[in-house]
Amino acid sequence: MSLYFLCFILFCVGLYSVLRKRNIIKIIIGLGIMEYAVNLFLILVGYRMHGRAPIFAKDQEILNMVDPLPQAMVLTTIVIGLAVTIIAVSLAIRIYEKYGTFDITKIRSLKG
């Protein structure tokens, strides 16, 4: 149980970084931390003590295996996270090009 809470603390660290930091790059890193906290949680959900990977192998019988579905989900989430990070990073590069800063308090041409 304590593992789940540690996972949740990691999630909160990421959320803090997204909400409180002013630097765009730190915000993107915070997103990554949040994402990986959820991935870790998914893996923990499917884990079973002393279980092994559910892969069919020669001359072996699998008695105690971990749940493969969360692992497949995590693979998908990693790809999605990659796409989001790429979009965010390329936007950050472009923003730096136009505004000359990474500080979100100084990037304010839109208001209202």
């Binding site: 790429i86 990073v89 390329s90 590069i93």
Partner: peptide
């Protein structure tokens, strides 16, 4: 292609 685009984007900026 994504890697190239990001790298070339940064280089363009430095050239400017």
């Amino acid at each position: 292609v994504i890697f190239l685009t990001l790298v070339l984007l940064i280089e363009e900026e430095e050239k400017e």
